[in-house]
Design a protein around this nucleic acid. Structure first.
Lengths: 149, 149
DNA sequence: ATTTTCCCGACTGATATAGTCAGGATAGAC
DNA sequence: GTCTATCCTGACTATATCAGTCGGGAAAAT
């Protein structure tokens, strides 16, 4: 239900790899694909899409490749995920995705609930930077919500 | 990405309807389906599945129908949702659903993150009872995580 | 000029979800 | 006892989304 889509996972693994190699100049798609076990052609699509958000810069040609446009500490997981899914049109019911008309628009007993879950998720995403992931520990203020498996 | 599946939404709307009519004896599937705009045949499947968890009781025959087996205050959204999706096999990576083998098993930089998001979601689900939904307000201790739309 | 890389849109295939269908079982109405 | 309204049950189909591919084009270095 709330397992992130492959595309998002690939994107995060890719920028994570870029963060790890920051300072080594542009990293080729093929290098990232190999290191993170991502289909090469698919990763092309994903990184290109990410470029549109300004989180990564691309360089073409012989010594081309991708690089983060900001320090890993300034990029959050939320930044990455947000730019992959087209955001839901404002005023639209969170639950009734697509442009289907919700039969309970305005008086839905659950819309608030879905909204809260979504906010809780992005609160975590937005408070986790690539640097946090590199350091292999969760941000301090979020740890208390962890609980057991 | 984290919009709940239709099945779960239908299930919740159905038990919500049952909670609303509690005390009126068994409620027919057709009545629930009409009130909540759920395909009749599909709702049959869903309610039958829910019955397996003991949250609802069914009665057959002329005056048959469904009813909650417990007071609305004793049933949480988490209870309902948990019984709809087969739980992920233990030890399995949260992200790499199905039984696909994760190439980063054990050393995945993100598994902790996914786990935390999942936990945060179920913390909200488990602290929201049907009674809360009937009262049309969120449980107090969860309100602080709401934020803007 | 050629190679190596990213760029870009259209396309295909797999998978999970959403929903249907036909018929059987049970309980009450008559 | 028969009839009807209801839930029960599994197998089935359709659809939408996701995952991934393909072919070719454009910049940058050699």
């Amino acid at each position: 239900m709330l397992t992130p889509p492959k595309k998002g996972q690939y994107a995060l693994r890719a920028v994570y790899e870029l963060a790890k190699r920051r300072g080594q100049g542009p990293i080729k798609i093929s290098a990232i694909a190999e290191a993170q076990a991502i289909p090469h052609r698919f990763l092309e699509v994903i990184l290109h899409q990410l470029k549109g958000s300004g989180l990564v810069d691309a360089k073409r040609g012989y010594y081309g490749g991708y690089a983060l446009s900001k320090p890993p500490a300034d990029i959050t997981v939320g930044d990455v995920l947000r730019h992959l899914q087209r955001e839901t049109p404002p005023g639209q019911c969170v639950a009734c995705g697509s442009q289907q008309s919700c039969p309970f628009v305005g008086r839905c007993a659950f819309s608030l609930l879905w909204q809260r879950v979504k906010n809780a998720a992005y609160e975590i995403y937005d408070s986790t930077t690539l640097q946090d992931l590199l350091d292999d520990h969760a941000p301090v203020e979020a740890l208390k919500t962890m609980g057991a498996a």
